[in-house]
Design a protein around this nucleic acid. Sequence first.
RNA 1: UGGGGGGUCGUCCAAGGGUAGGACAGCGGUCUUUGGAACCGCGAAUCGGGGUUCGAAUCCCUGCCUCCCAGCCA
Length: 578
Amino acid sequence: MNEAQNPPESDNSQENSSTESRDFIREIVAADLASGKHGGRVQTRFPPEPNGYLHIGHAKSICLNFGVAEENEGGRCNLRFDDTNPAKEEQEFVESIEEDLRWLGFDWGQRIFFASDYFEQLYEYALELIRRGLAYVDSLGAEEIREHRGTLTEPGKNSPYRERSVEENLDLFARMRAGEFEDGAHVLRAKIDMSSPHIVMRDPTLYRIRRAHHHRTGDAWCIYPMYDFTHCLSDSIEEITHSLCTLEFENHRPLYDWVLDALETPCHPQQIEFARLNLAFTLLSKRKLMRLVTDGLVDGWDDPRMPTISGLRRRGYTPEAIRAFCDLIGVAKRDSLVEMTPLENAVREHLNRIAPRYMAVLRPLKVIIDNYPEGQVEEFEAINNPEDPQAGTRKVPFSKELFIEQDDFREEAPNRKYFRLAPGREIRLRYAYFITCTSFVKNEMGEVIEVHCSYDPESRGGSSPDGRRVRGTSHWVSAAHAVPAQVRLYDRLFTKPNPNEVEEGGDFTDNLNPASLELLTECMVEPNLRGLEAESRVQFERQGYFCVDRDSSSERPVFNRTVSLRDSWAKIEKALMG
RNA sequence: UGGGGGGUCGUCCAAGGGUAGGACAGCGGUCUUUGGAACCGCGAAUCGGGGUUCGAAUCCCUGCCUCCCAGCCA
């Protein structure tokens, strides 16, 4: 939440120099600016429909639209809710969208608009279209309209109502508005060309009758304008110069231009299409994300496994990381499937710079230092962030009984490259002492439950006066001081790069990863980790970046793993095992 | 079989007739009190076939592959 107050990253400011390559959209904007095409203005807009939560795919569009505006002198970007379908839209979504946008670090000043604010104007435009003989009221049913539309390869047929007089159309349309007809009894259509090879041009529907409560206009209207009619006119009303949208709207551009050419409008914005983001192992479709939420397949829109902005936030992502990611992937027209790695890498990169370090043992194994005085407690000074000296230091208590990570001990060292604890092996406890394993204890299940060590008092602080080399360093928590915590480890939501790839008759939920959440309830963390604010982001040394969940309490902190640290030992081990 | 788009390293993005480049991933190394970070180095691509040209990722022809469109959704 506090990030919203931070100015956007300016690290890349030098990349804006003219020698840097620009994407094709910025290229067009620059050329238009140079030629004075839109009177030297740059005005974009981000036009979400409030029918779901924003996701990382929207972030791409947001960064593009707000970015293009920001980069140009006097450039502006409007926030406009495309709320023309009352059946799907809700106030909750309007609020979440604004919140996510602000959190991402964008500002639209007073320029927040709603397509529904233009309903009256839009209605006037429709009247004008009718007067010009360019629109008519069709009384065919939905089914019949579909039949008349033809197919991809066959032209459509004119509706028998196509040649109604202007007067009759005006009268009917007014009565549609007045509520004289049942839902679906009539529609207003543009009169274009039923034999057009562009299906979108075969007399597209402009208005439909729909008695539904609208989140803003309430019951004031029973007719609602369609996207194709609304969007271009809204753009024009707001004097947008460049209307950036995704590729699936490329087919609609002839209609976008037709409407604006058919009417006298303030201006004629240029629609430019770019490829939407696809992210491997997840889904970027509001409809499908909604399904995950409503079917209880995830824990709400902000489940940390969700690719939503709110999910990423709860997962521990930063706005800076998301923006850096959007920067990295670029903008083009070709379909692509972006790997998860650059996203993870972006957050690692940012968190490495800002996240304070702590020690936390996720899967504890008891270590007893036999030659350490019973009852003695020492405090060691630990560096909060080696990347940031300003972050200072903290004290961590140490005593005879500790917890280390189960992974940091083996009954037998597997190979020469293994630097961790094993009988006879010496390791360093971070910031503390060198210890050597002398023995271990197993339970009746054959599991190691206790490791005995001796320590070298000379190695206090983590280095030995004789200069002997110790390759392995383990993090640890003093048993007597440890705070029990819960940690949630997240993995990819789906098992396939493209979750939509399913067996005949199946659907995307078949590809849900059953292991996307692993709950660790026995974790032991250093006392300094108690009482952090929700959404605090930290690094657990040697493990990864974690974020304090809102379910956290000071008796029982709860952490979500944002992303693990790069783990080159895991790679070595994997390679060894073939 | 209609119309509209798109095909460049594993991935994402450049090069707009003149040495195919960057980022990420990968691999190798240096350093290291996080097997983290940082730093250094190495491999790796123009969808196919013709043509124009001294010279083609780029221009022309042709073929192939792929995405989008038949909502009273956006």
